[in-house]
């Protein structure tokens, strides 16, 4: 069958399957299970209405269960087996991880990323949002800052590979070093410890736009009168910003911060394409990628470690986001 036909068939089956499911299941509920007639008509109507929400929720619950809950449980189960997946080795994979120096480096680096990237992105985003707020060309500035969001992580890494290139004719950094100090070119990605920050900077560069857009909307939502009242109360622009504006958008700042934190724990592309995890730049996601398809037991164990680190951040994020909506 041609792909076009296949696609059309899938859409048709999907859409009409949904309609058919809702129609049929409701009919069964109303006619067969709890018919609205006979001596118990009133009670049956109430019961049918109690069941009905679950009819509508069922497809979503089923799909989420199949594609989210099952993989989590399955991964954990898989992480208890060896490379081939035949022999049960208990927590062996986890014990091996702890004993491996690269894993420890990855965990340490990952915590650095978690500390630096969300802080950097949120800080620059907030600064950009505030500074562009009243400018006539503020919207142009905002679009420019937002643009990296549209670039894939691999694409962004390629761009920054040029910036960091070990050649004064190509690399911006080495060109600047040569022009200013007449220094010989060097590979910044091989400077121990600090190379991590050069990699983090790429993600900050990408995520600042996201933070700026959300925080800019939040800043606009602050009632103008509270700012005017503060001005009359004698607050200078810095006091207005830090003591009136920032506290009022604290909830949004937390949501932005935690959202970026969760992202940090997922992004492997930058490290994978820039250094491949060499020179002490390994982080958990790219470390996991290194094991994938070679030793699935080990890879799923890493995945589980990542999930355990993300979980509390995720919970906090959702709690904050809900509080914001209220």
């Amino acid at each position: 069958m041609s792909p076009v036909l296949q696609g059309a068939a899938t859409i048709l089956i999907g859409v009409f399957g949904c309609i058919g499911y809702f129609y049929a299941s409701n009919i069964i509920l109303d006619r067969v299970l709890f018919p609205a007639r006979g001596p118990k008509a009133g009670r049956n109507i109430n019961r049918a209405n109690q069941v009905r929400p679950w009819l509508f929720l069922f497809p979503a619950i089923f799909a989420l269960g199949l594609y989210l809950v099952y993989p989590v449980v399955g991964s954990f189960y898989r992480s208890l087996f060896d490379r081939a997946g035949d022999d049960f080795i208990g927590l062996g994979n986890y014990i091996d991880l702890i004993n491996e120096p690269t894993f420890r480096t990855a965990v340490f680096n990952n915590f650095l990323w978690i500390l630096v990237v969300p802080a950097g992105s949120t800080f620059f985003g907030l600064a950009a949002a505030q500074l562009t707020d009243r400018l006539r060309w503020g919207n142009i500035a905002k679009s420019l800052i937002f643009m990296p969001m549209a670039i894939s992580f691999v694409g962004a890494s390629l761009i920054w590979k040029f910036v960091y290139a070990n050649n004064a004719d190509i690399g911006l950094i080495n060109a600047a070093r040569e022009a200013l100090f007449g220094a010989e070119p060097l590979d910044v990605l091989q400077i121990p410890f600090w190379n991590n920050f050069f990699l983090m900077f790429i993600l900050i560069w990408i995520q600042t736009g996201f933070a700026m857009v959300i925080l800019s909307a939040a800043l606009r939502g602050i009632p103008e009168e509270t700012i005017e009242a503060a001005i009359i109360d004698g607050a200078n622009p810095f006091q207005v910003f830090f003591r009136i504006k920032v506290p009022q958008i604290m909830g949004t700042i937390v949501v932005v911060w935690t959202t970026i934190t969760i992202l940090v724990l997922k992004v492997f592309d930058i490290v994978y394409t820039m250094t491949g995890g060499n020179f002490g730049t390994q982080i958990l996601p790219s470390y996991m990628m290194g094991y994938m398809f070679r030793d699935n037991g080990r890879a799923t164990a890493v995945a589980f470690v990542i999930m355990v680190i993300v979980l509390p951040v995720m919970v906090w994020n959702i709690v904050q986001a809900r509080r914001e909506q209220r």
Binding site: E225, T226, E228, A229, I231, I232, G234, A235, I244, P247
Partner: peptide, 21 residues
């Protein structure tokens, strides 16, 4: 003269209280 130095105080229609204080 900036507002703070004029020796005035203002009450707004929307109260304009600082919600986090």
């Amino acid at each position: 003269m900036p507002p703070a130095q004029r020796g005035i105080a203002m009450v707004f229609q929307s109260y304009a209280l600082y919600p986090h204080m």
